[in-house]
Design a protein around this nucleic acid. Structure first.
Lengths: 335, 335
DNA sequence: TTGTATGCGTTATCAA
DNA sequence: TTGATAACGCATACAA
């Protein structure tokens, strides 16, 4: 209850009757210090409720034990931090970092600012950076990686990539989604998403590939560049649907987009999956409790977060460490 | 592209031909330093791409410019960090803190650990703590506040409270929800949520009050203690519905719960709102794109985040600074 | 108005 | 095996 002035290592040393350096070594489990002394000091520190001041430790060791998690924001209408997928990823990263004794510095970075990655890695800010998504910033991430920064990204592996990326095989994911709809007998299948984004582009490729496998020719007119935010996507989809009343299937670049599609279809009196079958992407929580529950392509975010953290902390951030996990089709009632 | 050794203030001082202290003052806009000198140094620092090492600054000033945002976790099945409401709040807090030049240290805290609040405020960790929700920890938050910690919480104002809380008027919110359903002619209205949690308890009071105003007697049997997680809630609600087939309205303690209710009702062949009208709580993004879109009680999280940050940074964290914002009923198609 | 000197709490180097 | 000391990069009291 009372305001106690914070303990310093010096005070612990005084109480223990040893030098400060001995306390430092004892608490770091340094084998130089005698087992007996070490245990005695650790016990005392615990009793006193002492713990090392992280700021002083960081200044001295030049390590922060902090990892910056950054969500690149291209502009107002891009996928915001509050996007369910982003948030799911943030939560998983928070867990994975905590498991290794690291803290998470969460920032939205306006990528139009110069050297936005470097700023996150200022000495004393963070030991590494995890980017959620490459957005349109492949070049600047590469530049940061070349200058020796510990940067990894969730996303696609791209041509001429220098940094490590962790993600799922988006091409396969797109193919799984489209093949599933084809098997369900759908033939006029639209793709909803901005294919200029690396991951979405690869999903679109997979989608196109699946169509061609069936002897169908992908129709560019069935590609709708929707925004990522639910409301914006809804507007985009309404417009698209009014111009393409004949579609019977949808591959969406995210579950959020898929859900907006369900809603737009409902507004226009079309049933899901009776009139139009839909496959989403991500398998966020929303997917399972959408109405109808969404068939979707699952990405294992917990594993992805673990791999990202492992790489950024070990410094193994070269492109060779990239991973493309295998996505999984989860069939529910929307198809 | 090349690995440049990080600049220090000493090097900037050398290049500027002044003492380190002058650089320090210039960058801090300290009026002691001549306008001309100040501008010259600031310009030089910008050109060199220098910025202050936060760790050293923190050690020296004993301020971290970090605020810990903590999500109390009671047990496995309590509202997790990935909960949409939690994440929405986290996103708003990230913005509000960034606007004041602060970073956010995000942690899930297992509240069964002793002195969990104190640990977050260790010297060098954070200058203050914002708790998202009081959970069942009212007493320990009070204890921390009494010992002079800068602690504020999102949530309800409770009896014998010492710390400042910011939230909405939950009693009014519950009343708005129930009154709305009553106006729609519903009479058998269930309440879904764990009323032992402070905020939910107050919403339940408001709900009960509204029923009594209409001459109805709140039926304890219509209170279902559901979990917060969508899947768990779904199980709870299925069970509840099978025992209470006659309800015609639902007030849910969160939009997530409301959405699970929509799903459970759909499974049992009941329509929303035709058979059962539903009102959610929070107005998370999910609410607007649920099927049908949810009528709900909106809490202004952006404003709430701003108020929380303002209080924790100014140190005005006494209970007198508590705020209960006015919630707003958003009518959509679920009622 | 600017410069000098000291210390924030820790860890690493060196000496004992 | 332990202790004394210097340094990490910055901000401030004090001197000039």
């Amino acid at each position: 209850m009372s305001e106690k002035t914070p303990l310093t290592m010096a005070e612990v040393a005084a109480r223990a009757g040893v030098a400060e350096s001995t306390v430092s070594r004892a608490l770091a489990d340094n084998p130089l210090v005698a087992e007996k002394t070490r245990l005695r000091i650790q016990k005392l520190a615990a009793e006193l409720g002492y713990s090392i001041n992280p700021v002083a430790q960081s200044l001295r060791s030049q390590k922060t034990r902090v990892v910056a998690v950054a969500v690149p924001l291209v502009h107002e209408r891009s996928q915001p931090l509050s996007d369910p997928f982003m948030m799911g990823m943030v939560a998983q990263l928070a867990d994975a970092l905590a498991a290794r004794g690291y803290s998470m510095l969460l920032s939205k970075v306006p990528v139009h600012e110069e050297d936005w990655i470097g700023r996150l890695l200022l000495p004393g800010r963070a030991d590494g950076v995890i980017l959620i998504g490459q957005s349109f910033e492949h070049a600047s991430i590469n530049a940061a990686a070349r200058s020796g920064k510990a940067v990894v990204a969730w996303g696609a592996q791209l041509p001429a990539q220098v940094y490590a990326s962790v993600g799922t095989d988006n091409r396969l994911g797109g193919e799984l989604a489209a093949s599933h709809l084809l098997q369900r007998g759908r033939r006029r299948i639209a793709f909803l998403g901005d294919e200029r984004l690396p991951e979405v582009g690869q999903r679109y490729e997979g989608y196109s590939h699946a169509l061609r496998q069936q002897g169908l020719i992908p129709d560019g007119g069935l590609l709708a560049r929707t925004h990522f935010r639910a409301e914006d996507a809804l507007d985009d989809i309404r417009e698209f649907l009014s111009a393409h009343a004949d579609i019977d299937g949808i591959v969406a670049a995210s579950d959020v987009i898929a859900n907006s599609a369900i809603r737009a279809l409902a507004e226009s009196g079309r049933g899901v999956p009776s009139d139009v079958a839909i496959v989403g992407y991500d398998d966020i929580e929303l997917a399972s409790y959408a109405n109808p529950p969404l068939t979707t392509v699952r990405q294992d975010l917990a594993e992805g977060a673990r791999l990202l953290v492992e790489r950024v902390l070990s410094g193994e951030t070269a492109v060779a460490q990239s991973v493309a996990m295998t996505p999984e089709l989860i069939v529910r009632q929307s198809s």
